[in-house]
Nucleic acid binder design. Structure first.
Lengths: 207, 207
DNA sequence: CGTGTTTTCGCCCGGTAGGCGAAAACCTGG
DNA sequence: CCAGGTTTTCGCCTACCGGGCGAAAACACG
């Protein structure tokens, strides 16, 4: 989500929401406040630090050090944003201000990585969803097609997904009704131990 | 590596090296300068951002925002450090100043994670080493014993390790002479794709 | 009721971590 | 010079996981 700058520098270029750090808040409280005040986004399902961008010439004039964040909003939430603000696909960004394109790329990469070895999908998906809907979310976030078969199996085997029991009526073209699923946990946790050598007793849990 | 604070606040407690950001440098250049100037550590094999610590009350007095780094020095390098500075095992830290213990814990966790899914071991090991020496490094960094057998196999299969051809004379208690190995690459790269669903064509390389 | 469509399930394959024990290569003492 | 002890290295086996593929399930439509 970017907003179009009205003033110089970099007028008419698109910029990430953000702002100065208040005296009584830490950086995470600050970015939550900025998003709430400036673009009325409050329903963040996940917020995490990305990196500090501190090149002395990243913005004209006096030095500005930025702490960049990755913030996610579930797909069923569509916040009303101001008129100078709009959502853009990360694969087709408009002309951005400052180093904000690099920040977006970093965020995209972080998201893709964490989707793979954590349960972060919960932060993108609605409370209930079909596997094909989840497949669309994952494909969009990762940038390549994923197999619905494997998505179902891998996430289930890791204990992240559970069926709600409900189903969804098929569309006008027919087809078997899709089962509804939910994420077991609403907090991020690492699922793939990806450890060279695990602590002796630890075993990864199967479904 | 910590230095003992001489002055208030938190006199006689142990503190991470660091300092203010100069007008013409970014945060990484700054931490490299601080380490070189203050404790004469210049041979850093790896440096990466950890996180921003910005709690308004993390230090007494005016607000200080810190960008914490993880910096590694190979085991065969033993920089001479000032008299008020000393190395401490992360498992047995002395009384630390401010939030520096939390920073150390974060760094330890980051190191353990990256040792598992990247080739970051190259940043801890000397140019040549035996498997048992590498095992000691990994065990110390991870905090638990690892099997020399699997360490050899896993790192070799991932294409990270290669034999130099040389061997080391066994100690006075005998034993087969240990073969020497080196890391193939001296730059950090992710080895475990740990992707839920890989891009259709990508395959991980075997040895 | 048959055909087409979409989803779901089962089977099989290859690759990887990991355990375990045997073999290799050396030292020391008799 | 040989026997026993020590350390390292290698090979075999198992379990598990990602992944491909095709069959089966469940529905809409004519």
């Amino acid at each position: 989500m970017l907003w179009e700058r009205a003033r110089e520098p970099h007028a008419h270029r698109w910029s990430l929401p953000g702002g100065g750090l208040g005296d009584l808040e830490d950086v995470e409280a600050s970015i939550r406040r900025q998003l709430a005040e400036k673009v009325d986004v409050r329903q963040l399902s996940h917020v995490e630090q990305l990196a500090v961008f501190s090149n002395p010439k990243r913005v004209p004039g006096p030095r500005v050090v930025a702490t960049a964040f990755l913030g996610l909003v579930p797909s069923h939430i569509d916040p009303v944003v101001p008129s100078d603000t709009a959502w853009h696909p990360v694969d087709a960004l408009p002309a951005t201000a400052f180093d904000h394109e690099a920040i977006c790329r970093r965020a995209r990469h972080r998201l893709a990585s964490k989707l793979s070895y954590t349960n972060l999908g919960f932060a993108l998906a609605p409370p209930e969803f079909t596997i094909s809907a989840l497949r669309s979310l994952y494909s969009a976030a990762l940038g390549y097609k994923v197999s619905a078969t494997n998505l179902q199996r891998v996430l289930s085997r890791r204990g992240l997904l559970e069926p709600t029991g409900g189903t969804v009526q098929p569309g006008p073209s027919g087809g078997r009704p899709a089962a509804l699923f939910r994420f077991v946990s609403g907090e991020m946790r690492v699922t793939d131990p990806f450890a060279v050598l695990r602590p002796p007793s630890t075993r990864s849990l199967s479904s």
